[in-house]
């Protein structure tokens, strides 16, 4: 389990920025798009309403485009 969280920290941690609580509430329903680099170098934008959704879209793209 420790390894899982280390991987997660690596994926998200390198370039994460934490907004303040009040900002999060104000924009909670906005769809966010994040510049994303896939494992084979392909670049694009991954979008979603939550961190899970953005990650799932990026992972799905990685699995489909970088087998």
């Amino acid at each position: 389990m420790k390894n899982l969280f280390l991987t997660l920290a690596f994926v998200l941690g390198a370039a994460s920025s934490f907004a303040s609580d009040s900002t999060e509430e104000a924009v909670a329903l906005e769809r966010t798009c994040v510049p994303t680099t896939l494992s084979c170098g392909i670049e694009g934008w991954s979008c979603g309403d939550t961190t899970t959704e953005i990650l799932e879209n990026a992972i799905a793209a990685d699995e489909a485009l970088c087998p």
């Binding site: 899982l4 969280f5 991987t7 997660l8 690596f10 994926v11 998200l12 390198a14 370039a15 994460s16 920025s17 934490f18 907004a19 900002t23 999060e24 924009v27 909670a28 906005e30 769809r31 966010t32 994040v34 510049p35 994303t36 680099t37 896939l38 494992s39 991954s46 979603g48 309403d49 939550t50 961190t51 899970t52 959704e53 953005i54 990650l55 990026a58 992972i59 990685d62």
Partner: peptide, 18 residues
């Protein structure tokens, strides 16, 4: 483990280690 975290907490993704 990260279900439903607000999207604003990420500003860039490198998916290579996932």
């Amino acid at each position: 483990a990260i279900e439903n975290k607000p999207a604003q907490e990420i500003n860039m993704l490198d998916i290579s280690r996932f």
